[in-house]
Amino acid sequence: MELEFRLDRRGDTVVLIFHGGHMRAGLPLGEEVFAAAGCTVLVPSRPGYGGTPLSTAPHFCDAVRELCADLGVDRVAAAVGISGGGPTAATMAARHPSLVDRLIMISAVSFLPYPDPVTRLGAYVVFNGATERLTWAGVRALMRLAPEAGLRLMLRGLSTLPVGTVMAALSDDDRAMLLHLFSHMRSGRGFVSDLRPTPDVTAGIDQPTLVIATRTDRGVPFAHAESLANTIRHASLVESQAHTHLVWLGTDWPSIADRIRTFLDAYA
């Protein structure tokens, strides 16, 4: 089965990361904490993103299990679900417990209804297979010609706070990272596929689970984190003070990163 992936080899500890909407294996985000811990990072592109065909969706987690076997990976320290990659990571943990030791959910979509009907309709219009290329071409042009306006536009959808407050808290490095990120995102056929309901597997997850989210996330409401923490048996909820969906930009991220490293070490 065709499957695009990135493997950054470091130490013996392997972390399996499923990124969210508009992301693919070649576009890293929020992986620094695992790199700093010396972890090898395996990042498959989810169905419909990058070089992974949408046709892999029904058997994607099984294909990732086979990929791990082909790479000589018989255990992963954690499956990490970021944003829209949350249901995939959860399904991986439930379906392949002999492979996945722990689960980490970061700003993750749960199995609650998502998104709201208005957002869903807009997403079908803006990010379908016929329009997403034009949409992202427009975003790239805006980031190049009017970066301040471009950032304000994108961040409005990621925070419940006034966009001026969010912008004022960004460092120069944050701005550069966001400009690069938004300039390289694509939806392919994956984002519209992500809008379809996914079977709830939380009752089948026995692994220790860390759920990280902020109440000011407009992209994925905090209720999703609360749902995951309440329905997964061995889950702990860590509330970030970040201003946006991108919790790595929060001033408390260093302490949360420490919590992640402790979580990885505790069950070694």
Rank of each mutant, 00 (worst) to 15 (best):
L195P: 09
L237Q: 05
A213G: 09
A229Y: 01
H245L: 06
H180F: 12
V163C: 11
L210C: 05
V192A: 08
M185Y: 09
V192I: 12
Q241V: 12
S236N: 11
F222I: 10
S240F: 01
T202C: 12
S227T: 07
T216Y: 12
P208T: 02
A229G: 07
G190M: 06
P208V: 00
A168G: 14
P254W: 05
G188A: 09
E239N: 08
V201M: 12
N230S: 15
D206Q: 13
L161H: 10
R175P: 04
S159E: 05
S227K: 11
R152Q: 12
G204Y: 04
S236R: 15
A168D: 15
L151E: 01
W253M: 09
L237T: 05
L228D: 00
L228K: 01
T231M: 05
D200Y: 02
T209M: 00
R175D: 06
L155H: 04
P162F: 08
V211W: 00
A176T: 11
D173I: 06
L145Q: 14
D194Y: 01
P147E: 08
W248H: 14
H180G: 09
F222Y: 15
L237I: 07
D206E: 13
A149Q: 12
Q207Y: 00
P221D: 08
S240T: 03
L170A: 05
S240C: 00
D200M: 06
T209Q: 04
M154H: 10
H224P: 07
W253K: 03
V163I: 10
S159A: 13
R189Y: 14
V192S: 05
T244S: 12
R215L: 02
E148H: 12
D172S: 14
D206I: 04
T209Y: 00
L210Q: 02
S159V: 09
G250H: 10
L151F: 06
T231C: 05
W253G: 01
D174R: 00
M154Q: 14
T209V: 00
D174L: 00
L195E: 02
E226Y: 07
L153S: 13
A225K: 04
V201N: 07
V220A: 11
P254A: 10
V220H: 03
T214Q: 06
L155C: 07
L228N: 01
T165M: 11
Q241C: 14
E226W: 06
W248R: 15
